[in-house]
Write a protein that binds this DNA or RNA. Structure first.
Length: 458
RNA sequence: GGAAAGUUGGCGGAGUGGUCGAUCGCGGCGGUCUUGAAAACCGUUGACCCGCAAGGGUUCGGGGGUUCGAAUCCCUCACUUUCCGCCA
């Protein structure tokens, strides 16, 4: 949630930012938070002075008792009854205002950075970089450096202006991955339905080995980039869900074990970020760079249709997540390093990709700046999202109470948190299978071969 | 699942109704000494909220209660440890 300091210091900027995020009633919501804060302060001041008086009377009674002056002590006691009632009233007022304020703050999304494009849908997202993609002249400007691409000055193409591609004529009919999975006996969707339900595929033989190869490849790449591997629990308590913001809003998206009141994680972000809940880090420990492979569980309530075909949308899938915690001064640099890392993975996998800067209206509730990575699937003729890499600024850390002690003045500051997928497996597998199919079999990218142990799936 | 014992500041560990935000040790920070470092010695050192400040309030696992006054007593919840049971 937003900090009160942000709201008091930059009220107009906050309101403008919320409007960019298509949050209706931004001004009213912010004014309401401020009003509730004043209410709380008033109650606290009244409570504090009543408490002060009470404390001094109690101390006086202690002294009188010690001196054996019982009568005077009894007289002093008589004065406390009204005070006591007052304190209780003020405390209740204070708690009520505080609670309403927190509730109000929880309804307000994060403020996007200035670099975030205006817009209200995916059409307004801007492609800032395209790689491994052979389409014509229109995309030339996107062969730009990361420095340009991830700055306000760089070039970009709004998706609404995305050039119509001429279909390259394949030498043979390209199959979608669900057919390839069957042809090469890699994944059995029907068996998954039998033992669990739709959206729980069973990977078999070379299909299972491909999963393991990708997991190991991604973890090894992350380790090379300096990330510490974490193997967290995949079941978490409610406090963790609140910490990273899955609760209360997205409760319906998580599987919930009611008897123990535990949730299956929808992403490793939840346990790995919550490692730092209620923690005060030393500035020298920053940036924290963690990575984790976990299974991720999503109920995907309400999804249907062709989007969910095959591996496109699952209830359980494997993902390697990178999580960073950094200072406000360095979080943007951290973010860029994460983007470079994810881009490097896609390059090594020789997949056509584009990097989108999400518009205000398409970003998640909690993000301040978010880039999506998409890979092109030749047989499905569509782009598939494989990573979302975000900077949450202080929004998540404020709720988590994740702070750090600043080196120069020893002051405790709210940290910045960031995370991104590096990468989610299913759609990578879909794109690999579809894009690399040949008449002889499916070609495994060179970088992956040592992990897979073969050059082809036959 | 049954039984018992615990939960105190960054860590260890005192404290069973009054001046206790909490003895002490370690660690951290500042200083003396030293060419430098170590040792020794001196000082300092939690978080949150209100306040321009002075200062005040809250906080001893969470919540509630008793009392003029609670780290200390009572209730309740959570967690931890040990033993028993079960078990990969």
């Amino acid at each position: 949630m937003l900090t009160l300091k942000q709201i008091y210091d930059d009220k107009e900027l906050v309101i403008a930012g919320l409007e960019k995020k298509r949050f209706s009633g931004a001004r009213e919501a912010i004014d309401n938070v401020i009003a509730l804060d004043q209410e709380r302060k008033n109650a606290q001041q009244k409570k504090d002075s009543a408490s002060q008086e009470m404390n001094s009377i109690a101390k006086e009674i202690g002294r009188l008792m010690g001196a054996g002056k019982r009568d005077e002590a009894e007289a002093a006691k008589a004065k406390t009854a009204q005070l006591k009632a007052d304190i209780k009233t003020y405390e209740q007022e204070m708690a009520a205002a505080e609670e309403r304020q927190t509730q109000a703050l929880l309804q307000i999304p994060n403020v996007p950075y200035s670099i975030v494009p205006e817009g209200h849908s995916a059409e307004d997202n801007i492609a800032v970089k395209v790689g491994g993609w052979a389409y014509g002249e229109a995309l030339k400007p996107l062969e730009q450096s990361a420095e340009q691409a991830f700055s306000a000055e760089g070039n970009g193409i709004a998706l609404r202006d995305w050039p119509a591609a001429e279909d390259p004529q394949p030498a043979f009919a390209k199959l979608p991955h669900w057919e390839l999975a069957k042809k090469y006996n890699l994944i059995d969707f029907d068996l998954g339905v039998k033992i669990s339900g739709a959206g729980f595929p069973v990977y078999i033989g070379q299909g299972a080995r491909l999963q393991r190869a990708l997991i190991n490849f991604f973890l090894a790449e992350a380790a090379n980039a300096g990330y510490t591997e974490i193997m967290p629990p995949t079941v978490v308590n409610a406090a963790s869900g609140y910490g990273t913001g899955q609760l209360p809003d997205k409760e319906g998206q998580m599987y919930h074990c009611e008897v123990d009141d535990l949730y299956l994680i929808p992403t490793a972000e939840v346990p790995v970020t919550n490692l730092y809940r209620d923690v005060i880090l030393d500035e020298q420990e920053l940036p924290i760079k963690n990575c984790a492979y976990t299974e991720c569980f999503r109920r995907e309530a309400g999804s249907y249709g062709k989007d969910v075909r095959g591996l496109n949308r699952l209830h359980e899938f494997s993902k390697i997540e990178i999580v960073r915690i950094d200072t406000p001064e360095h979080s943007d640099r951290s973010h860029k390093e994460m983007l470079a890392h994810v881009e490097g993975l896609l390059q090594k996998l020789e997949l056509p990709y584009r990097i989108l800067r999400l518009s205000g209206g398409d970003m998640s509730f909690t993000a301040a700046l978010c880039y999506d990575f998409e890979v092109y699937s030749e047989a499905q003729k569509r782009w598939l999202e494989v990573s979302s890499t975000s900077n949450f600024d202080t929004y998540q850390a404020n709720r988590l109470h994740c702070r750090y002690r600043r080196q120069e003045d020893k002051k405790v500051q709210i940290a910045h948190t960031l995370n991104g997928s590096a990468l989610a497996l299913p759609r990578i597998v879909a794109a690999l299978l579809e894009n690399n199919q040949t008449e002889e079999g499916i070609r495994i990218p060179k970088a992956l071969q040592p992990y897979f142990g073969a050059e082809m799936i036959r």
